[in-house]
Design a protein around this nucleic acid. Structure first.
Lengths: 142, 142
DNA sequence: GCAATCGATTGCATTTTGCAATCATTTGGA
DNA sequence: TCCAAATGATTGCAAAATGCAATCGATTGC
């Protein structure tokens, strides 16, 4: 009766149970680097996510508190997805994946520019970008 | 005829195409933190990977150059799996996932100790552990 | 010999994914 | 007012991946 929904409570495993698939982090990436906030926008990325997978992942991300969903004040049909602090703190994970791939995989040089600049700017660059994401996705603050 | 085997050449995506699943990084984790090198050892982890998935992932990791396979000199049947430099450099990714989970998921405190100690020790701790992994997995060096 | 152990494969039911078509609702313009 | 376009999804269905147990041939240790 008291069985956990997780395979184990290891930190690595718990992360993988949330974003250990081929699509979830790409959605977060698009919110962070491409400023995407609407359902249709995520469909335009190069990898070509399909609508059912996207809907499923957005619902999951909302359920686990990485993303929030709100109605667009100007278009009643439109939904606006925002990152929570929990989601913004995935940036260091994504930055580290980027670093590994740029060292070991055949990345497109154009798509590597953002990550290279972040690395050149030093360790504070990730923090700075998280500050910017908070301004965009969390309340305006005073 | 010249189509890429990848969905895109984005750094984030290329990383996910290699380790974007629920099992691959757990195998790497076990090699890094539990010192596991033999097929049977990986089967004893809490998450309970099955033999066909394990065989599939070990073959894939070998194929992409994250792991090498060698025969055990003392037991002809035994295979010894080692991390390559490409594999060792996944430690920063794993450390970052651990950090996120320890902040945002219900991790087992006992299993969090290693990561907490690494964080307390400062940024050099990851580098130091990579040095140790090189000593264990790459040639002895002179 | 012979049981135990090695890495790995097979068979099969279940689940997840990929892909296209479609949905009901709302918006914007004529 | 009407109607096409756009919104966030859902559905149907084939294909692929996964989970699980049984099993494989080869080798080791006794």
């Amino acid at each position: 009766m008291t069985s956990s929904p997780f395979r184990s409570s290891c930190p690595i495993n718990l992360g993988l149970e949330v974003f250990g698939d081929k699509w979830t982090l790409l959605i977060i990436r698009d919110m962070m680097f491409a400023g995407k906030r609407h359902f249709r926008e995520f469909l335009t990325s190069d990898e070509g996510i399909s609508t059912n997978i996207l809907a499923d992942r957005l619902a999951m991300l909302t359920r686990v508190g990485i993303v929030t969903r709100a109605g667009d004040p100007s278009h009643r049909l439109k939904a606006i997805y925002s990152l929570t602090e929990k989601g913004i703190q995935l940036l260091p994970v994504i930055a580290q994946i980027s670093r590994w791939s740029r060292s070991h995989m055949p990345v497109d040089p154009t798509l590597a520019i953002t990550g290279e600049a972040r690395d050149r700017a030093g360790p504070d660059a990730v923090e700075a970008q998280m500050v910017a994401l908070r301004a965009m996705h969390l309340g305006t603050g005073s």
